[in-house]
Design a protein around this nucleic acid. Sequence first.
RNA 1: GGCCCCUUCGUCUAUCGGCUAGGACAUCUGGUUCUCAUCCAGGUAAGAGGAGUUCGACUCUCCUAGGGGCUGCCA
Length: 436
Amino acid sequence: MSEIRVRFAPSPTGKVHIGNIRAAIYNWLFARHTGGKFLLRVEDTDLERSTPEAIAVLFDCMKWLGLDYDEEVFYQTKNVKRHLEVVDQLLASGHAYKVEKTSRDGKTGVVTMFRMPKEGVIEFDDIVKGHMAKKAEDIQDFAIVRSDGSPIFHIANVVDDIDQRVTHIIRGDDHVENTFKHICIFRALGAEVPKYGHLSMIVNQQGKPYSKRDGAAFVGEYREQGYLPEALFNYLLLLGWNPGDDREVLTREEMIKLFELEKVHVTAAMFDPKKLAWMNGEYIKKIPHDEFVKEVKSRAGEAPAHDDAWWSYLADQLQVRTKFLNDIPAAVKCFVSDDFEFDPKAVEKRLKKPGVKATLLDLVERFSKVEDWSAPALEALVKELSQGNGMGPWVHPIRVAVSGRGEGIGLFEMLQLLGKEKTLSRLRHAAETLAS
RNA sequence: GGCCCCUUCGUCUAUCGGCUAGGACAUCUGGUUCUCAUCCAGGUAAGAGGAGUUCGACUCUCCUAGGGGCUGCCA
């Protein structure tokens, strides 16, 4: 058996759809699992949309997700000459013919058609969908060269697959019907027909193909929103495949080891943003501490100088609470700047209550005497104040007064990070301007 | 219309004829807790419908219904 070779063949439009990248993921995993080659072919025949920028975006997405490819990138436009040579071959052998046609938009010209067999059954064993069969008579002859002389997808795709010696074609469900046609082209050329595996679509809550109207549909958007590539990769993989046991969060090594194309599902999978968000949280929790510290620092914006221990402590507090990296700036704002916003609802609930002003001013008084400004010491102080009756009456107003928000990291950890001076001035300021 | 494909909790799924139908997300309840989150314990929730094969069917066959794909000088 010769080497397994698969390919990902997107047309670069600047937006890489999640359904498309899932096909890339499956191809990549299949290649890595079998020790085969994962090839990248850029189907850049649509010259208007296939700009260098769009191609760069494609590479960028693949790199972000860790989809490394073997051999050189294959550009479809560079193979046009071959496509047309093959068409001549088909013309000569009678598998193709020229005919004058009028297109939908009313243009008339001579196109080259592929001649379908008129009888018999075309069949293949799809690795994911099982046995597929279709009567040849149900498929009409189809165009392979436009009247302007440019090759059409069907011929270009098949010729490129032959030239790249692709053994397994793993692609979207929407190509099933094309497969019957393509098999006929392979045969007409005396080429070996590759194995096929067709992947179901990713659908929205209505069961319709997931599109940009349903939320983020392109890989770049997930990156912008603070998703980790590992989480997107893992989630997309699970949309139509599972290792056969209850494991869901898998390392790349496990995925490679366990992935089997035969186990990929036939049915369409509904995209669930909630589960993706959960998975993103799982991966964020797994980020090594030092790396997460860097992440926090880089997203904190302009920040006054703090030592490593301070950042480390803050990051520690934050990591378990972070679902999206993009939540970090808002979460650290009150630590690195005095110019943070007060959440009106939190202010209403915790500060605009009778007696809060007095409580806060009292706290300023007590806190100012504290010498050991640490979370445990502050906690002990407030506990003493509450005399075991719950710290709620103190804790909530303090939190809102110093951070502007009703939720966040542990309060005493927060005060420790802010330092005595900032805590006191914020408490005082809140007592005088917001509390009642 | 024609052809092809699909159908287990709300969602992703396990089950390769023995099922008290399991897990995860979501949701709800309780515990831990200063909030939020984490963590822990637990609950609600599914085999589209109908025939057949079989001792036994979610699993096999057929029909119906519903859903999707394709039916271009797009890919």
